[in-house]
């Protein structure tokens, strides 16, 4: 469905991504794990062109192109088929929950208001916010804001959703409600690429795990195989370390 080859990215002298190859099939839920500063978020941002990588090829819907020299038109086209959920929600502060969900439909996809509102309400219902249509982001809890952001991502009917640490900015008691929504999406075969620090989430929801360190992919395998890893010392210690912290 989407494949990238040889993504390289440097910020000044620091090479953040050192040649990343990654293929995601339809219906995959891929968890990207790894220590801080390993380039997980940068990879995700490069894949949606929020950062422009220095080198790399992308194959999206059977069409291959160079990511560094991609046209704005192509970026626009890809963004209309993908969605992004941010660590800090990034809801539009001047819009209600419903308007947050429908803005892209109305403005980018030119869907009329009545139809967009219908889709928007359906998406908010889906994430359990049927009573918050008219609430502004400042009136919502972090967990609710992130669920609005997920509804916003779903509204455009994307082929893939990128999640950048969707629960890292949340209070511990609010993490569950967001993870539940993501799990439901996984059950519905939504294709997702999720950067996360939630080991249990990765273990129980993803079907594949990508482990990154220092800008490279150290391991890319099925989830069971990853968590039962007996051979790679670095991965074993990473898992043990995180598990020890009691998640």
């Amino acid at each position: 469905m989407i494949e990238v080859k040889g993504i390289r990215k440097r910020f000044g002298n620091l090479e953040v991504l050192k040649g990343i190859d990654l293929k995601i099939n339809k219906g995959d839920v891929v968890a990207i794990l790894g220590p801080s500063g390993s380039g997980k978020t940068t990879l995700l941002r490069c894949m949606n062109f929020l950062e422009k990588c220095d080198e790399g090829q992308m194959i999206f819907d059977d069409e291959e192109f160079a990511m560094a020299s991609v046209s704005n038109k192509k970026i626009h086209e890809i963004r209309n088929k993908t969605a992004f959920v941010f660590q800090s929600f990034n809801l539009f502060a001047n819009k209600t929950a419903l308007e947050n969900v429908t803005l892209g439909l109305k403005v980018a996809k030119k869907i009329n208001k009545a139809e967009a509102d219908e889709i928007g309400k359906k998406m908010l219902d889906k994430v359990g916010l049927e009573d918050k249509y008219n609430a502004y982001p400042s009136q919502l809890s972090g967990g609710q804001q992130q669920r609005v952001a997920i509804a916003r991502a779903l509204a455009g009917n994307p082929e893939i959703i990128y999640f950048d640490e969707p629960t890292s900015a949340l209070d511990p008691e609010l993490i569950g409600e967001v993870l539940r929504v993501i799990k439901e999406l996984a059950d519905e075969q939504m294709t997702m690429l999720v950067v996360t620090h939630e080991m249990n989430f990765a273990r129980h929801i993803s079907n594949r795990v990508v482990f990154m360190e220092n800008g490279s992919i150290l391991e890319n395998c099925e989830t069971d195989k990853f968590f039962n890893n007996r051979t790679n010392e670095r991965i074993r210690s990473f898992i043990a370390n995180i598990m020890q912290k009691g998640e």
Partner: peptide, 24 residues
């Protein structure tokens, strides 16, 4: 982040400005 979110919703620069940034 709101500007990036606008782009991710498929809006272009002027649409992001008009609907999200300028009102605020």
């Amino acid at each position: 982040g709101q500007i990036e979110a606008g782009y991710c919703c498929g809006l272009n620069f002027l649409q992001v400005m008009w609907h999200i940034v300028l009102p605020q």
